Computed example of a mutant assay.
Amino acid sequence: MSALEEYTIARYQEDYRAQIIELWAKCGLTRPWNDPDKDIDRKLTDRNGAFFVLLKGREIAGSVMVSYDGHRGSIYYLSVDPDHQSAGLGKMLMEHCETFLLELGCPKINLFVREGNEQVLRFYEKLGFSEETAVALGKRLIPDI
């Protein structure tokens, strides 16, 4: 059995919530202005996307949120526990998301990487992503704090 075969990808279940939030904190994905509980609650209302978890046995080793708006796919909260990184698991999760989106007829994926996160930028570049000449704009409609 290869190392990757020890891992499975499954749909999010509510009993994973605390472990997922802990994973996101461990991976540096949480921010004071985003409540991760609320982000999970919002994701669970998304009828066009999915929330996948990466499991090694019963242990949460990673997660990813994927969505499709009819025009582009989006990836959020891709995370692999630092104790499990560099084994191809992030790539495994992304391939799973790409297959999911292709089955929906999605022609393109967009995602955001925080400025200065060179390690993550290199990861996505290895997967064929490239920087686009667009400016990301945002406006908060509902404050989390």
Rank of each mutant, 00 (worst) to 15 (best):
F100A: 02
D46L: 03
A61N: 01
L141A: 05
I21E: 07
T30G: 01
T99K: 14
A87C: 12
T8E: 11
R17A: 11
K56C: 08
L102P: 00
V120N: 03
L137H: 10
L137N: 09
I60K: 01
V66P: 03
H71R: 13
K56S: 08
L78C: 06
K139T: 02
E59I: 07
D83V: 11
E115T: 12
S79E: 04
K126M: 03
F51Q: 09
P143F: 00
K108A: 08
R122E: 13
K139P: 02
Q19I: 02
E115W: 00
G128Q: 07
A61G: 05
K26W: 01
L4V: 05
Y16G: 01
G73P: 04
L111H: 02
L137Y: 15
L137A: 08
E6W: 00
H71P: 04
S74N: 10
D46C: 05
A18I: 13
P82W: 05
E132P: 09
W33D: 12
T133C: 10
D81A: 06
I142R: 09
P82S: 06
K38N: 08
L121I: 15
D83I: 06
K108M: 10
Y124I: 08
S67T: 15
L55Y: 07
L78V: 11
F112T: 14
A136D: 10
V135I: 10
L127G: 09
E118I: 10
L4T: 04
D46R: 01
E95N: 15
L44Y: 00
D83E: 15
I109E: 06
V53Y: 06
D15F: 11
R72K: 14
Y124F: 12
G138P: 00
N34T: 11
F112Q: 14
L54A: 03
L127M: 14
L111T: 08
L101P: 08
